[in-house]
Design a protein around this nucleic acid. Structure first.
Lengths: 226, 226
DNA sequence: TCAACCTGTTACAATCCCGTTATCGAAGCA
DNA sequence: TGCTTCGATAACGGGATTGTAACAGGTTGA
């Protein structure tokens, strides 16, 4: 398991530092931003968790969360809200924007660490929860890293397997090449987006008649359709 | 959303009780059976999910799954297998019987809950499409980048899709060509505003009788009207 | 060490998207 | 009727997008 990267967004600099220090002690890689604008400018898609202050200067944390959710590159990233207010309205609104948890200020460092750990564990569990992905005679077993076509083993390479798993786990959804690169390749690796094309071609050929279920939406990307 | 009913089939009574208790805490309605025969006798078609032990007395879980799949009344019900063995043969056979997931014993209660939730979400998600934009028999699915006319797929190009999405999202509003160019094309790209006309024409033709709902306001622009 | 395999890049062909242009019709106005 | 303006539409073609074969560097394993 690679190190988790966490982005802390709060306009109180001292708070950012405290959180950064403590999270880094726990073994996370941490960056901080003191405004939503700054945070959005530093490639939020690279992080596996975002700690977000609700009350900030220009742009509120809620608004930023909305933007993150609207972009397919960042829509899946878990968000923990920090809020000083404990009015129900705020909380409810925040949760509907896809917050995965929230903490009310003032909070103890211990509390934050617990929430972070819990959210990361939960989302990690979700991603591996569906070990079996299938469509008719096509079965993916994520535990055994194996693909079966009508009960017959089909040797997929790692990349092919991961791409098919991604598409199959979100049947119907169209993923851009960029998103596929980000989710299947790690963030650090830089490859051309045409690489995705080539892997899709190889994948299509290997899964026989299900190849045509991997559809191309010109200008958008690829998806798995029934 | 009505409460989900879950049937737990396992010959270990204590295990049944533990699962029943925990699933009920999570808000599910749960019944248990200690044999495949008993389970089949209690109208399995009433359940939305079946948790099935592979190794049981007379009839194996696999065999029971086969029977469930053979009956159209129960063929659609998702099944999660519980198995102590992890031999390859068992798994392969299980997959072909249409298991939606499997868990190997010993398992934690947390793990079971996660799988149940995940499988139910997946099967439910297939029915309720998100991100839908529609007017009567005309549907736009933004995630799938797809347009349906009376349930029939209509192949729209990217530009056509984006324009229709814009108009449909703001029904009744008249957009100037300039605004449409700004929103659908990016700001950098420079094209003649007559280009919009042409794309509108192509779009109108493709969406059949709904073409006339895209109205022209001479001197102003275009909009979607009921 | 060699062979087999994985995988990113490149090149080229095929497709089709879509911007431009030209022509025509409709509406408004004198 | 003649003129002008605006929009509809057909047709063309350049260029963007995609599919795919081939190649090469890297890795793995015997």
């Amino acid at each position: 398991m690679t190190k988790h990267r966490i982005l802390v967004v709060d306009d109180e600099e001292s708070l950012c530092e405290i959180l950064q220090f403590n999270l880094e002690v726990e073994g996370y890689e941490v960056d901080t931003a003191d405004s939503a604008e700054q945070a959005l400018a530093m490639n939020p898609e690279r992080y596996s968790l975002i700690l977000l202050d609700v009350m900030m200067g220009e742009m509120s944390g809620f608004h930023m969360a909305q933007l993150l959710r609207a972009d397919p590159k960042t829509a899946h990233i878990p968000i923990i809200f920090c809020t000083a207010k404990d009015s129900e309205d705020d909380t409810v609104a925040g949760l509907n924007l896809g917050a995965d948890d929230y903490i009310t200020k003032p909070f103890s460092v211990r509390e934050v660490l617990a929430r972070v750990k819990s959210v990361l564990r939960r989302t990690a569990a979700q991603e591996t929860a569906e070990d079996l992905l299938g469509f008719e005679g096509l079965q993916l077993d994520r535990l055994r890293k194996r693909c079966l076509l009508d009960g017959q083993k089909v040797p997929l390479t790692k990349k092919e397997f991961e791409i098919l798993a991604l598409l199959l786990a979100h049947r119907g959804v169209i993923f851009s090449r960029e998103t596929i690169l980000q989710r299947v390749w790690s963030d650090e690796v830089v490859v051309l987006d045409r690489t995705v094309d080539v892997n899709i071609t190889r994948l299509r050929r290997k899964i026989g008649r299900y190849g045509e279920h991997i559809v191309t939406r010109s200008g958008y990307g690829y998806g798995f359709e029934a």
